[in-house]
Write a protein that binds this DNA or RNA. Structure first.
Lengths: 105, 105
DNA sequence: CCTTTAATTCGAATATATTCGAATAATTGA
DNA sequence: TCAATTATTCGAATATATTCGAATTAAAGG
C-alpha cells in the first residue's frame, strides 16, 4: 500500500490539530485510544462504515494526532502522546481530561 | 441590537471549542485577546473585511471561547478565561502556550 | 495462484463553512 | 432629527468537508 503521510513533530500545527479534534467521531476515536492504547483500525468499535472511518483516521494521522504502524494487513493506531507533549505541553492531557464522562464533549 | 447568544459554562462543548480554534484568523484573535486583554471589535488589527471578522467573532462567542460586552455602539470582546478553566482545566493555558512565537500555530 | 482479511481510495451526493459587498441596526452626540 | 460611528446581518459565490457504496490494494495463508 501507499506510503502514509504523518508529519514530523515540529511540523505539527495547532490549528490543524484543532480541526482534527473538532469532529465528534474523531474525538471518540482518540478517547478510545487514550483508554485502551494502540488498536487496529478494525478493533475500534465505532458505528460508521469503514470508508468513513478510514477518512477520519487519515485526518487524525495527517494532523499529527495519531501514529499508524503497519503490521501485515492491519494498521495499528496510537496517540502521539510524547510528540504532542513535546510540541504543545499539557495540551493532550487537558483534552483527555475534557473528554471524561459527564463532559458532553 | 439583537441579543447575543453565549453558552452557559456547562454548555461549552469540547468539539465546538476545537472547531472555533481550527481557523487561523480566530487563533490570531484569541492570541491578541490573551496578550492585550479585552478589546473592542474595531481595535483588533486583523486585516480582513469587517463582515468577515464579525463572522469569526460570532463563531468564537457561540462556542464559548469569548465573551462580548456591549457598551454604546461598541462590543468589547474578552476570553472566557475562568469559564474555560472551570470546564476544561488546563486547556486554555496549554493552547495559549502553543500560540507563542515560533510555534507556527 | 486463489481466497480471505483488513483497510484505503475513488467518486459523487450532500452538507457546512468562508468570504465579502451591500444593506441594516443601534447608539451617541450635534 | 440627522449624521457619524460601530458593528451585525443578509445573500450569494466559492471553497471545503463529510458520508458511504463500490472498486482497489496489500499481505498472508492455504
Amino acid at each position: 500500500m501507499r506510503m502514509l503521510y504523518q508529519p514530523d513533530v515540529n511540523e505539527i500545527n495547532l490549528s490543524t490539530v484543532f480541526y482534527a479534534l473538532s469532529d465528534q467521531i474523531r474525538l471518540d476515536i482518540i478517547k478510545t485510544l487514550a483508554e485502551i492504547g494502540e488498536q487496529s483500525c478494525g478493533a475500534l468499535e465505532i458505528n460508521v462504515p469503514n470508508s468513513t472511518l478510514s477518512h477520519h483516521y487519515k485526518v487524525l494521522r495527517e494532523s499529527g494526532v495519531t501514529h499508524t504502524r503497519i503490521e501485515g494487513t492491519q494498521r495499528f493506531i496510537s496517540l502521539r502522546h510524547n510528540d504532542l507533549n513535546t510540541r504543545f505541553p499539557g495540551l493532550l492531557s487537558a483534552i483527555l481530561q475534557g473528554l471524561e464522562p459527564g463532559k458532553s464533549s
